[in-house]
Design a protein around this nucleic acid. Structure first.
Length: 482
RNA sequence: GGGUCGUUAGCUCAAUGGUAGAGCUGCUCCCUUUUAAGGAGUAGGUUGUAGGUUCGAGUCCUACACGACCCA
């Protein structure tokens, strides 16, 4: 069997067998009473006795003196092994160690001549034998495809990857803490829905065999969260996965994490304040400052207050004061002049939206709330009282992307039913009749917000792709050579 | 969906159409405070897959797979 393996792999299999022949289990048992490398550095005391466990990530062989770095969740720490100091069997095991193996050691703290905090090892236990070599010790794992397919190797060898993913994990926790501190209740609503509502997007379909029923993975939790408002819950939120059966890109993964929060008796302006406080707080908390460097060299400044600007004002600023007086043909000509590539037969509102996406959203590095979007774009929001052609909503632009929408939620059940049927655009929402029925029982006026958690994690970590902040992004399976 | 680019040793990378190489890793040695340790030696390849052009293909052509970037 081992003759089929590359020599590098065969060598490790041989060592594995030799460890077993010594009567040692190469996949050890619990190793308790350890401190992390971080805790050891934090409580440094020359001569103190410590136990730690971690992966061997470097090795400098000086003959009788051996220096290795162990890596654990907190970082790396050097261990120093004097071969003569080890018991006979431990020494035999030590000789069979490889980079990548996981060991536990016990010993005392000391400082080397070069000033590196180290552990003088007195006993060593093999906890797991690694059968494959580590990636390049200097360059790490570079190949993007391999980094995503074999995320474990990426995590072991690339500190930058660990940092971006760790920031994402801390962001999710920060968002939960922020909302809990303001007495929002976290709930879980269905991921499998009979009607995929709450957004305009293509859903994934699945099937329940026993019930003989087609189901959709949710594209948004919105319609369920609103039913909770009807039911009397006044401040609710959910952080969970949404699924959209659309293209994959730098900014899109088919499953992505969404925060949605609803606040009874508030409105879109109340939500904007909440979002502003939440996101600027996240930047401060997670990056230690309000200016965050992006991979394209730009810097996002999260300093408050964030400007608010009406959608039509933003469009007029980039498209000219007479934009909304133009004929359809003139709009098309002007849009092309602005560098847009238009499909034929777009409605005026759609051309305007294209201009907005390219010239406003595409330029917005620092946070800005665009408010009062055209009503036909947002069927789930309240119409503005003075101007019923627009709705009381904001869209937070940040890092040239839409990151967070917020609404004064539409709570008129009859108007909601009508608006569902008049929506423009390529995707039309399916009508969730159960939701409309629930609205008839009376939903309090409320503000709602959504936040693309992955996108915010991208921006806060300065990552150039959503895949850098998702532990296991979707990839096609590799061809198996069978 | 369209376009461009990429895929070479376990990892990181070389190689005018003319003998597939290097560093790290591995293996055998030397060295009791090293830091990408150092020194001596050595092994490691169906160049993504399948075809084609050619005296000769990692290199040129076609298709496919996977990925990256840009556009829709």
């Amino acid at each position: 069997m081992s003759e089929d393996l590359a020599p590098l792999l065969a060598a490790r299999r041989e060592k594995l067998e030799k460890v077993r022949l010594l009567g040692v289990d190469p996949y050890g048992a619990a190793y308790s009473g350890t401190e992390s490398t971080g805790e050891i550095r934090g409580r440094w005391e020359e001569g103190r006795r410590v136990r730690l466990a971690g992966r061997i990530v470097s090795h400098r062989d000086m003959g009788k003196s051996q220096f290795l770095h162990l890596q654990d969740r907190a970082g790396r720490l050097q261990i120093y092994v004097q071969k003569p100091a080890l018991a006979e069997k431990e020494l035999a095991v030590f000789q069979l160690l490889d980079l990548g193996d996981i060991v536990g050691v016990e010993g005392t703290l000391f400082m080397t001549k070069a000033g590196e905090p180290s552990v003088r090892v007195e006993s060593l236990t093999l906890l797991s034998k690694s059968l494959v070599p580590l990636p390049d010790k200097w360059h790490g794992l570079v190949d993007v495809e391999t980094r995503h397919r074999q995320r474990h190797l990426d995590l072991i060898s690339n500190e930058g990857s660990r940092k971006a993913l760790d920031l994402r994990i801390r962001l999710v926790r920060y968002l939960r803490d922020f909302l809990h501190a303001r007495e929002f209740t976290e709930v879980e609503t269905p991921m499998m829905q009979t009607v995929a509502g709450g957004a305009a997007a293509e859903p994934f379909q699945t099937r329940h065999n026993a019930m003989g029923m087609d189901l959709f993975l949710r594209i948004a939790p919105e319609l369920y969260l609103k039913r909770l408002l009807v039911g009397g819950m006044e401040k609710v939120f959910e952080i969970n996965r949404n699924f959209r059966n659309e293209g994959i890109s730098r900014k899109h993964n088919p499953e992505f994490t969404m925060l949605e929060a609803y606040w009874a008796y508030s409105d879109f302006e109340g939500m904007a304040g909440l979002v502003e406080e939440m996101i600027s707080g996240a930047a401060q908390e997670l990056t230690g400052g309000l200016q965050v460097q992006q991979s394209d060299g730009s810097v996002i400044d999260f300093t408050r207050p964030w400007p608010r600007k009406r959608y039509w004002d933003a469009v007029v600023e980039v498209a000219g004061a007479d934009w909304f007086q133009l004929s359809l043909e003139e709009m098309e000509k002007k849009a092309k002049g602005l560098g847009l590539d238009l499909e034929p037969k777009l409605a005026a509102a759609e051309i305007t939206q294209k201009v907005f996406e390219k010239k406003v959203e595409g330029q917005a590095v620092n946070p800005i709330f665009i408010t009062h979007l055209p009503a036909e774009l947002v069927p789930l929001a309240k119409l503005n009282r003075e101007d019923p052609t627009v709705v009381d909503v904001f869209e937070l632009l940040l890092g040239r992307q839409e990151v967070s929408p917020g609404y004064s939620e539409l709570n008129d059940p009859l108007l909601q039913a009508e608006r569902f049927r008049k929506q423009v655009g390529e995707h039309t929402q399916k009508v969730d009749e159960d939701f409309l029925e629930a609205l008839q029982s009376g939903m309090p006026p409320a503000g709602g917000m959504g936040l693309g958690v992955d996108r915010l994690a991208m921006l806060l970590s300065g990552s150039d792709s959503i895949r850098e902040v998702i532990l296991f992004p979707l990839l096609r399976p590799r061809e198996t050579s069978a």
